[in-house]
């Protein structure tokens, strides 16, 4: 490659011809995923990724189970109150049994995963 005779690499301003680390002291050799100015973590070793995806999914699943159980309990309480008000005490107690079983399921879902309680 040939250059014009008056070509000189670099800038006419000497301050712009300093080495990069001197010009940008904030940028270190590890810049890329450890640089706090990087807003979006790029592809790096574990950058921005879930470290234990299975554990996170299980936690979400447990939460969904408990929410479904509580929805069922609200329905059972509604049925139980109606039954008791209509004099059907036996049905009300069956609803209470259902509530107890549901609570045991919720308790079990909470009890699983001792690191995520």
């Amino acid at each position: 490659m040939t250059y014009p005779p008056d070509y000189r690499p670099g800038s006419d301003e000497p301050r712009l011809n300093r080495p990069v680390p001197e010009r940008y002291p904030q940028i270190r050799s590890t810049s890329g995923y450890a640089d706090p100015r990087v807003v979006h973590s790029g592809p790096g070793p574990g950058a921005g990724a879930e470290q234990e995806p299975e554990r996170s999914a299980v936690l979400s699943a447990r939460l969904v189970v408990v929410l479904c159980v509580v929805a069922g309990q609200l329905w059972a309480l509604n049925v139980g109150v109606d039954a008791w008000m209509q004099g059907r005490t036996g049905t009300a107690w069956w609803c209470t049994g259902f509530e107890g079983l549901s609570f045991l399921i919720a308790l079990g879902a909470w009890w699983l995963g001792p690191r995520d309680r």
């Binding site: 139980g80 549901s102 609570f103």
Partner: peptide
């Protein structure tokens, strides 16, 4: 909710 249901019954 379990406690409430027991109370109702």
């Amino acid at each position: 909710l379990l406690v409430g249901s027991i109370a109702v019954s």
